[in-house]
Design a protein around this nucleic acid. Structure first.
Lengths: 208, 208, 208, 208
DNA sequence: AATGAATGAGCCTTCATTCAT
DNA sequence: CATGAATGAAGGCTCATTCAT
């Protein structure tokens, strides 16, 4: 009824949610990821998250409708780079060079979202039934599809899959191997590229 | 809760209700694995396990001191074949042929304990802090050590690690790829052997 | 179990169900004391307390972090008068008159917190390991110290201890003796004062 | 305290139970007392008792029909000395000397059954409702009756009660006071005798 | 934008007890 | 004399969620 002044949010926002003083949502996600990654999704309670943020549990419910929603929010934020990569890959010619570039970009992207990725890896069971679970697997499959030829030999398909998983595994398993992280990343990337290169070669010769 | 399955004892049940006494412990583990794998460790309650076995929760506690203990029991079953493999590897000369045989055996062992393995893979977060968690990673490392040369190039070390993870990943990811399981297993094994072969070759030439 | 008392809100209940909000914590303590005293700490379940208050168990946990915490809260209420007495005693000269006054005040204080005291007396075993157990004994010792001379003869020390315990015991044992409570309290007090007086006299003469 | 009764089974006992290999019942009681005293009746589980005896819980049920029964057994064994004292008191003239002797004997008896006594004192709440609870309080009252004159002044009645409680309290509270136990026992006894003597004197003069 | 209070469901665990063997 | 296996009941506690304020 008094109308207009209520929505001070109004005027300028061409892009929504421009507010400086509304970082709570973000802080919730940050803390949540931290705890989810550390203890697992199921084992992390909203109480813990709230406590670490020094707000009440009820406050969380102002920003997220459910616990799962926090996870979904998290998920979407950090899934974007992968989506962009897949999209980009779609615009490129299906050459070996492109595939190599996909792996390179993926390697970088992976390093950026490492904590979330680790979390996803370690909580597959908990996340599977979540409305978001399918999406994750789908994304993986689509990504694999960008580097593997559908009519390739089974072994070459395995190679492409393996290339991706090598990169995933690399992050966790190599953690307690000697050496500088960047160097390790490169080594992992090299092996992955190798695998894809072999797969590609196989496809070419069998194809021609 | 109490009387639910009483009537199921009736006509159609192909599996007998009153199996030979003394197998309860085993049956608990079987059902537990089934449910843990399906829903995750945290999300599976003892009530569910008990109900499916048509015993009371308290009965579970006669056989296992805690929920975690059920998991540990499961875990040890999984560990045995791997331990045996590691032990066997220790007795063999460190040749390429040996390494290939290790992978072959591992592939078979893995197929045997697949559900358990899948569970472990998907519940790392839940299993990590389990008094037994360390052991699992340790075992992996020791297994990798049987196929990788300590002074090899970083990429070759990655290859060996990748060989193992390829086999792990193969079981889950390739599940929704066309083709007969045994054929897929062989393809995966082939790629793994390839990786180790390359790693071995690299080591040889750099060593000489 | 859930909705049982919903309808009890109805006509006949003389005590109002919806007391002024905010007193819940106090009400929990009141009911808890009542039940603890009646049945013992261990034998009283949170369910009982909750049921009698017509709230859920979980509500108790909003106000107290644990069952033991309810006891501790209770305890602190009991402690306050005694602490104040000890503190006051510290400010007074160590004369016989002071000691007599301590007993007088203690007698009154005791009558005020009688139920709680009775509970403590009767649940020593249950309370002993509880963080609150030590504190209780300490308090007794410090109180005794205010009336007994450290260098007194052993018998006189016993007399002082006995004076205090006479007052404790008096409350419970004399309950089924004939006579008006106030009169009994006075008789008990008189004996206690007598004991301390004797102890004091002994100390004086032996000291001079 | 542990093995005390082992040898007492020996020669002199006219009562049956002649078997050497049937001390299990006794051992159960010993261990039970030990644990009850240490942790309280409620907090001690049959599992603990069984474990410490290295038998199964079910074995306990061969010897005692219920957990409470163990307590009752314990109770009866150790209540005997008090009953005997009361009985003996009944045969004596009601003189001051007799009263003093009662106290002396009680003091000794108390020292013998100290652990049980302590347990009873500290577990009144748990023991109260036990079919045997009344008996304990009754016994106390009857014992007090042997040293107090029914028509005495209230203060003198308190003195007699106090005399008994002094002895009870003495055992527990004086435990962390300096000095040899036997000396302390005597000091406590002396004060108790003093109290009864005063009470007796009061009665005499008011009576004449 | 957030809190205080409470709920309902469920969880893991423990206990005293029973009974066929 | 004692065990192995199991039960029914209950216990303390935690969790995601709600809602009036």
């Amino acid at each position: 009824m008094s109308g207009t002044t209520q929505d001070a949010t109004g005027a300028t926002n061409a892009a929504p949610k421009r507010q400086r003083r509304g970082d709570t949502r973000q802080r919730i996600q940050d803390v949540a990821l931290e705890l989810f990654a550390e203890q697992g999704y199921e084992k992390t309670s909203l109480r813990e998250i709230a406590e670490r943020l020094d707000v009440t549990k009820a406050a969380l419910y102002y920003h997220f409708k459910t616990k799962e929603d926090i996870l979904i929010g998290l998920f979407q934020d950090l899934q974007r780079p992968i989506d962009e990569l897949i999209e980009w890959a779609g615009t490129q010619p299906r050459t070996l060079d492109t595939k190599r570039e996909i792996l390179r970009r993926y390697s970088v992207a992976l390093a950026d979202v490492a904590p979330l990725f680790r979390f996803m890896q370690e909580n597959q069971a908990a996340v599977r039934e979540l409305s978001v679970g399918e999406t994750f697997k789908d994304r993986m499959i689509r990504l694999i599809d960008t580097i593997k030829e559908p009519d390739a030999a089974l072994t070459d398909q395995v190679r492409c899959t393996s290339a991706l998983f090598t990169m995933h595994a690399g992050m966790f398993v190599l953690r307690d191997v000697e050496g500088d992280p960047e160097e390790k990343r490169k080594a992992v990337l090299e092996v992955a590229i190798d695998l894809v290169t072999q797969a590609h070669a196989g496809t070419q010769s069998s194809g021609s």
